[in-house]
Amino acid sequence: LTVEVTLDGRRIELHGLSEEAHEILRHALERNADDKEIKKILEELRK
């Protein structure tokens, strides 16, 4: 799955996400998580 997010003013596409990762990010974006929170989530998903 692919998600497009804006971090530090740049639009980035995240490819190859699992369903779980996609859901976690989608929920964070829906509640307008800040860049710091999104980065933390991405860091966790990379593990």
Results as ranks from 00 to 15, higher is better:
Leu29Pro: 00
Glu4Met: 11
Glu37Gln: 07
Gly9Arg: 02
Ala21Tyr: 08
Ile12Phe: 12
Leu17Lys: 00
Lys36Leu: 13
Ile12Asn: 02
Gly16Gln: 05
Ser18Asp: 08
Lys36Tyr: 13
Leu45Ala: 04
Leu42Val: 08
Ile41Gly: 00
Lys39Ala: 10
Ala33Asn: 03
Ala21His: 09
Val5Met: 04
Thr6Phe: 09
His22Gly: 09
Leu42Met: 07
His27Gly: 11
Asp8Ile: 03
Val5Glu: 02
Arg10Ser: 08
Glu30Asp: 11
Asp35Gln: 10
Val5Gly: 02
Glu44Gly: 10
Glu4Ala: 08
Ile24Glu: 06
Asp35Met: 08
Ile41Thr: 01
His15Ala: 09
Glu23Asp: 08
Glu44Met: 15
Leu7Ser: 03
Ile12Leu: 08
Glu37Leu: 07
Ile24Arg: 14
Glu4Asn: 06
Leu1Pro: 05
Leu29Val: 07
Glu30Gln: 14
Leu42Asn: 00
Lys36Thr: 13
Glu44Ser: 12
Gly9Asp: 04
Leu7Ile: 13
Leu1Asn: 07
Val3Lys: 03
Gly16Ala: 05
Glu19Pro: 12
Asp34Glu: 08
Glu44His: 12
Lys47Asp: 09
Arg11Lys: 11
Asp34Ser: 12
Arg11Gly: 04
Leu29Trp: 09
His22Pro: 01
Lys36Ala: 14
Leu25Val: 06
Asp34Cys: 06
Leu1Gly: 07
Val3His: 04
Glu13Leu: 15
Gly16Phe: 09
Thr6Leu: 12
Lys39Arg: 13
Ile41Trp: 03
Glu43Pro: 00
Thr6Met: 13
His22Phe: 15
Val3Asp: 03
Leu17Met: 06
Asp35Tyr: 09
His22Asn: 08
Asn32Phe: 11
Glu37His: 05
Arg31Gln: 07
Glu44Asp: 11
Asp34Leu: 08
Glu37Asn: 03
Arg46Thr: 13
Ile38Gly: 00
His15Cys: 11
Leu42Asp: 00
Arg11Gln: 08
Ile24Asn: 06
Arg46Asp: 09
Ala28Thr: 02
Asp34Met: 06
Lys40Cys: 08
Thr2Ile: 09
Glu20Tyr: 14
Lys40Ala: 13
Glu20Cys: 06
Leu17Asn: 01
Lys40Pro: 00
Ala21Leu: 07
Ala21Gln: 14
Glu44Gln: 13
Glu13Gln: 13
His22Tyr: 15
Leu29Gln: 04
Ala28Pro: 00
Leu42Tyr: 04
Glu19Lys: 13
Leu25Thr: 00
Lys36Phe: 13
Leu1Trp: 10
Glu44Lys: 13
Glu13Met: 14
Leu25Gln: 00
Ile24Ala: 09
Ala21Lys: 03
Lys39Ile: 12
Leu25Phe: 04
Ile12Cys: 10
Val3Ser: 04
Asn32Arg: 12
Glu37Val: 08
Ile24Trp: 10
His15Ile: 09
Leu42Ala: 01
Asp34Lys: 07
Leu7Gln: 03
Lys40Thr: 09
His22Met: 14
Glu23His: 14
Val3Cys: 07
Arg10His: 10
Leu17Arg: 01
Leu42Phe: 04
Arg26Ile: 12
Glu43Gln: 12
Asp35Pro: 09
Leu42Ile: 14
Arg26Tyr: 04
Asp35Thr: 10
Glu37Thr: 09
Glu4Ile: 15
Arg31Thr: 06
Glu44Asn: 12
Leu1His: 10
Glu13Gly: 02
His15Asp: 07
His27Thr: 12
Ala28Ile: 05
Ile24Ser: 06
Glu20Gly: 08
Leu45Glu: 01
Ala21Ser: 07
His27Asn: 12
His27Cys: 12
Glu43Lys: 12
Ala28Tyr: 06
Glu23Trp: 15
Glu19Ile: 13
Leu7Phe: 04
Glu4Asp: 05
Ile38Arg: 00
Asp35Lys: 05
Leu42Glu: 00
Ile12Gln: 05
Leu14Gly: 01
Leu7Val: 09
Leu29Gly: 01
Ile38Met: 10
Arg26Cys: 03
Arg26Pro: 00
Glu30Ala: 15
Leu14Gln: 01
Lys47Asn: 11
Asp34Ala: 09
Ala21Cys: 07
